[in-house]
Design a protein around this nucleic acid. Structure first.
Lengths: 361, 361
DNA sequence: AGACGATGCCGACCATCTATGAGATCGCAA
DNA sequence: TTGCGATCTCATAGATGGTCGGCATCGTCT
């Protein structure tokens, strides 16, 4: 690994001159600058950003804390963060905490030792104190898909509105007994979706009945299990809103086994628009969250704050969008080709032209 | 951000003593060490790894280059890499290249500036010269799921064997006209899977017929399109092997539209065991690759090499495993609960207890 | 001649580690 | 008890690679 000293020796100038020549700061004769550049190239020189960072207190590295990149929700968010970071010259260190606070603490220790310029949290159970410690130490933090009672920037999608849209859709189809399978009630996302469910009922003049609400845990198995409970309710509901797609898939499988037709006997709507929801039979009506945008905006906020630490914190709220497919509406099968085109267009920004491509496997 | 100087001043000792006290190197009176530790804690001290790295030439940071973390294949690999890295005290910088060589070059420049200790490549179209440049500069590289004519460590799954298992399975069910939908023929993974197909036919005494091989591009749409072509072949094949799950899903949808029953009229096997393959109707028989292990082993190899740069390169070849579900075999519907349990057990190591959990959405 | 712009060098500095060596302490033998 | 070497304990002084302000030099213009 060559240093500016070696380049300086070869070029017959001082190291400082090499530094200014390569960085374009200060006065260096154009011809000399070119010669120095050529020498640097020929030596395969790469500036040592450690030394640079040591001096100017910027590492151009960010931390990204997620519970588990394997969970279908996070890759899109991570991609959004990473894209924006990269175009701004930042690198991103990935941290999987599994929702484990000890692990989270260990990662944060590492990130602080590495002197990252900021951290994006996309984890449903953040330790507020961890975030606060970071902020106290002067490390900017942005929360994505999560609100917390801490004074910092955040981006999230409007869960109340998303759930409202889903349930209003079912009600507009004429359903009057709409059940809901919620997520763990200690999660704000789950709470908000339940709230949206209630609002929709209320606005359509339908009384809220606790008997129609079952608590799941966001896993497929809970959807499968609770679907059986659902059928026992008398009078039986004609529609279900599941607080996420995984549980909706569980419901779907369970109903299929029981010989209940979807959507004819039971309409079903999920939440998240995970890829899964496009291949089930029937395809799942669901609420799409702007996952990529969430990550991208989070990163933009973070980079903005790094240069303006005193700015007032921003809270960005994105709009979810109802995607009507087959599990809620009785109609002829849509053309696959049309769907494919729609999907491609819609997700172009999100994942680049490599989307849905199985390459590398 | 406090430094050892400030701690030293408070403790009334020299910075060097603080360094030794905190690192446990050299002699420091036990009582003094404790006092220094206490002071460091109270100041929320985090050692500056930049300064440390500058000196001992180890950053404890690795680079991970993938085409697109959004592609369902890579999160599991990334998780494997990250887990092993973390338990060894390393951080991982994520790089999405989209298969774009310019982007790849830019990322590598960044990684070298940050002086990462090594790089894992999991990209189907790596630029051999990029890898070679890295190796020449003394930066260890490990290739995951990709062999390349370069002298370095690598891990991959045996694609020939995987395809062989898939086709042998179909043949053993009595099929004699088995078609194949391949991936892009310029990708080694696709070539190897075609080779496995041929071997299976050969060993079962069935002549290879080029007319039964259609070239797809690993995307769902190509499976959808080519399934129609398949039906035109005379005599019509009774089984298809698709080189990945996405294309298999396309085939499935297409056949469904044409009223062809799977597996009764046409058996189908995919490749990759993506989550999708568990929710289609019928569920997809497929070849599972040990994705997590691939990442984990890649990272182990890398960390090994960092401490032993002169070791002979290792080429690890993992075994894929055929997962028989419903798209190939005519039988009663399996119990959902049994499947759920199996899945959970099998993937425990891969994703921790958070697997399949929709939290944070 | 003096002022000013262009050019390039010198040395300090960032936070940490490590080699060196000085001084203190301790054990053991005389 | 004293003396001496071995062992502790800690401070000092580079060294890491790059940046930056200050300063010297040189040429040109007024």
């Amino acid at each position: 690994m060559p240093t500016i000293y070696e380049i300086a020796k070869l070029a017959g100038v001082s190291p400082a001159t090499v530094s200014r020549a390569l960085n374009g700061t200060g006065y260096v004769r154009a011809e000399l600058r070119e010669r120095i550049r050529a020498i640097a190239d020929s030596m395969d020189y790469h500036p040592n950003s450690l030394a640079r960072s040591l001096l100017n207190k910027r590492t151009y590295t960010l931390g990204l804390v997620v519970p588990d990149i394997t969970n279908p929700f996070f890759p899109a968010v991570a991609r959004g963060v990473e894209d924006v970071a990269h175009t701004n010259g930042y690198g991103v260190i990935l941290c999987n905490t599994d929702g484990n606070l000890q692990k989270e603490a260990k990662y944060l220790k590492m990130l602080r030792s590495k002197r990252v310029d900021g951290v994006v949290f996309t984890t449903s159970r953040v330790q507020a104190s961890h975030v606060q410690d970071l902020l106290n130490a002067g490390v900017p933090v942005v929360l994505a898909d999560r609100r917390l009672d801490v004074r910092c920037d955040s981006v999230s999608a409007d869960n109340v509105d998303g759930a409202y849209q889903a349930v209003a859709h079912l009600l507009s189809l004429g359903h009057t007994r709409v059940a809901m399978i919620t997520g763990p009630t200690n999660l704000t996302t789950a709470q908000e979706r339940l709230e949206g469910y209630k609002q929709a009922l209320c606005e359509h003049g339908i009384a809220f009945s606790p008997r129609l609400v079952l608590e799941g845990d966001f896993r497929q198995e809970s959807g499968y299990r609770l679907a059986r409970e659902l059928l026992k309710i008398d009078p039986r509901p004609t529609a279900v809103f599941a607080a996420n797609d995984l549980m909706a898939v569980g419901v779907l499988m369970s109903l299929e086994e029981q010989g209940i037709r979807v959507p004819e006997d039971m309409a079903l709507v999920g939440y998240d628009d995970v890829v899964l929801s496009r291949v089930t039979r029937p395809r799942l009506t669901t609420v799409a969250q702007p996952k990529y945008e969430m990550g991208a905006i989070a990163c933009e906020l973070l980079i903005g704050r790094i240069s303006h630490p005193e700015k007032e914190p921003e809270k960005v709220l994105l709009k979810p969008r109802l995607v009507v497919r087959e599990s809620s509406v009785v109609r002829e099968v849509e053309q696959m080709s049309r769907l494919a085109i729609t999907r491609k267009t819609r997700r172009t920004r999100a994942t680049g032209d490599n989307n849905g491509n199985g390459q590398g496997t």
